[in-house]
Design a protein around this nucleic acid. Sequence first.
DNA 1: GCCGTTTTCGGCCCGACTGTTTTCAGTCG
Length: 582
Amino acid sequence: MLCIFFAKTSNEVTNQEIANIFKEIAKFLEIDGVDFKPYAYEKAAFSLESLKENVGEIYRNGGNKALREISGIGKNLADHIEEYLKTGKIKIYEQYKKRLPVKMDELMRVEGLGPKKIKVLYQKLGVKNLRDLEKSVKKHRIAPLFGFGEKTEKNILQGLEFLKQNKGRSLLQDIMPLSFEVLKKLENLREVQKVSLAGSLRRKKETIGDVDFLVVSENSEKVMDFFVNLPGIEKVWGKGKTKSSVHMRDGFDMDLRVVPEKSYGSALQYFTGAQDHNIATRKIAIDKGLKLSEYGVFKGSKQIAGKTEEDVYKAIGLKWMDPEIRENTGEIEAALNDKLPKLVKLKDIKGDLHCHSNWNGGENSIEVMAKAAMALGYEYIGISDHTKFLRIENGLNEKQLLQQKEEVEKLNTKFGKNFRILHGCEANILNDGSIDIKEDVLVKLDYVIAGIHSSLKMPKSEMMARIEKAMKNPNVDILAHPTGRIVNQRDEYQLDFDKILKIAKETGTILEINSSSRLDLRDLYIRRAKAEGVKMIINTDSHQKEQLSLMDYGVWQARRGWAEKQDIINTLPVEELLKYFK
DNA sequence: GCCGTTTTCGGCCCGACTGTTTTCAGTCG
């Protein structure tokens, strides 16, 4: 029976795979100067990415016609998908790749490089990948090129250096969904008694090297068979009795280890790490005349613990601690002194205050967003659309904000007492620190989020003066994505975070933990904010209702920063929450 | 290439910023 199951799924094509190809075709079309088609391909890619069902499944059940029912997919793109499902290739994509055989997605990750510059670099210098690019930069061959120059060359060099720091690590958000799916499949396997994620994924680090699974099983061979035949695998590195490794088409590795039940807890403790945490815990064991390894806690040759993590920690005199804080940054001392934090949980969150509607760049109406928030069990949602300076996002002006306020009020009457829509906005902090919406309108909103969306490369002193002025604005309640970094993509602005904390404390400005790929603040900053008593809020920055569920990632980030329920204001009921706004 | 209370053609979020070709192409959000 198992064999039939594998035969059906082992060649399963993921939606992401096709989405990635569409995105790349869009880039090729852009290079050719084709109008609007790139947009269509991008849109289709986005649609595939947010699709719940698998495209292969849809095709098997409803054929080409069913594909065309997916939003953004018409006749041509449905044919492309069908072609890929049948042959593993898309002809026009192969042709484009032949004409311009460069690692587009790799090169595009360098800030400042787009499709057209990449084409020139290939044609003039033969640059195909990051390594070629680095060689050309070092030989100063880029600056003399027509359309380039000294500054462009310098920017490329900086972009390359930034990428190097993050080499080989994937975003937690990109890896988590598939890892969770595999975990669920392993849980459902009859041969599996226990299974858990381990490694940096269990610690919810923002970037992940590879995915680790730990399994207890009396039939490890069957488990390994199952593992190396999972859908989405590109290559099997190795298959053994206790360890197997595979490389996924999405570009990361997964390891599975089978361990004996008596060592499950100690193995979990060991493989969850971090390394510094393990070194510290082993040292504590040695001090007590014990030995801690992935096989258990031993007194001489006698195993005294190992079956569960709780036992392992207890045996060396520590309380069990949440994986997110196991970095040897004070958690061991806290565990020894019974001062471990009670980390905030997803179920503590009562609402999401950074949500966009279709009044600007968002996809859904205020009502749909509100209902989605209700379905998540929230007590409130805050609608905070972009304001007028951001033309691209169709930012709202004063008049539109007031019209929107009327709609929010109507909906609130409709929903009654059980749910509340708060009305805010995500206003822009202009270069001089002023806000792009007039004060008499700002005061009519329930709250104001302010963020920087332009002139990101200001020198530190100017940037800080700008942020300080915005935070001191009596209408600004929340500072959105306070550092401006995007994980693996962009460094933070030139800023002085201690000064931001000081101003936040003085002015009562709330700092935002952004759940999207920005993950502002980083864990260390959250800890510092908590230590200073600065309040934070966890928001998703959702542009469509499905993104509301990304709250997990913000909560995990907060947990890595030792945040407790009382540090996060959207754990409060709405009336209490409102007291924190100026 | 997709889509339709603009429905089989004609629209499609587009302005700011950067650096360079000094008038605007490419990139970003």
